[in-house]
């Protein structure tokens, strides 16, 4: 098991404004599935942004594959794939054009994997991305992401726009790549996506975070109702 992610006492504040995350700490090994839960505005997307290097931490330790994600000259970016509902693709491209563009950035891009996923998700290369529904566009993202052969997959609420069948297929594929040693972090509002799938839950509330077992999800939300 390789140490993929290391976070210790991570704090993030918007400059001259509010603090969004306080004292977040956890580690992630290869093949592990970590779920991030929290109510709306808790800071799930912010944490994902920090992991991807979109924002810079205010203080603390944050290392992904041993590097600060915000460094200008990161070396290991090709090991990470980011699937997010906030990601949109260029509408006038065909799926084939986009996958060719995406593949040009990843030296380990696997065309056989791409072919398999295209069949599984029932997509065709000559479809125009702009003509696809939101859910279908997320499928295209998933095809591109998993075909890149990453070591870490960061997923930010992408399953929210998928129909139940697609969501099921998606998690089957995620489970398959986990067996190959890929680590997964899924930030979501849908607790059911994490039960019986993830190894641990990172629960964010009031800027603080805590690690829980998947079985404790219901209890977490029950506690919030009681409060």
């Amino acid at each position: 098991m390789t140490n993929i992610l290391k976070i210790q006492h991570l704090n993030y504040s918007i400059p001259y404004s509010v603090t969004l995350l306080e004292d977040v700490s956890f580690e992630l090994q290869s093949g592990e599935f970590l779920g991030i839960l929290g109510h709306n505005g808790a800071g799930k997307t912010t944490l994902m942004d920090l992991l991807m290097g979109y924002r810079n931490k205010t203080s603390g330790v944050l290392e992904v594959f041993g590097e600060n994600p915000h460094d200008i000259e990161r070396q290991n970016r090709n090991k990470i794939v980011f699937l997010s509902q906030e990601v949109s693709l260029k509408g006038n491209l065909t799926i084939g054009d986009f996958l060719k563009f995406h593949a040009s950035f990843f030296s380990d891009y696997d065309l056989n994997e791409q072919l398999h996923l295209m069949q599984v998700f029932n997509l065709k290369l000559n479809m125009k991305i702009g003509s696809l529904s939101t859910g279908q566009q997320k499928k295209v993202q998933v095809v591109a992401g998993l075909s890149s052969k990453p070591k870490l997959i960061l997923i930010d609420e992408i399953t929210a726009v998928m129909d139940p069948e697609t969501r099921s297929i998606f998690f089957i594929e995620i489970e398959r790549v986990r067996e190959e040693g890929v680590a997964v972090i899924l930030a979501t509002n849908i607790a059911e996506d994490l039960v019986e799938r993830c190894d641990r839950i990172l629960f964010i509330a009031d800027k603080k975070s805590s690690i829980h077992r998947p079985q404790e999800i219901s209890a977490l939300f029950n506690l919030k109702k009681a409060a």
């Binding site: 991807m52 980011f82 949109s88």
Partner: peptide, 19 residues
């Protein structure tokens, strides 16, 4: 932000390129 016509900034930043 999410735009039907263009790649979102988050997608481009996620590519394995230096800034």
């Amino acid at each position: 932000v999410s735009d039907q016509d263009q790649f979102s900034w988050k997608y481009l930043q996620s590519l394995p390129l230096t800034k």
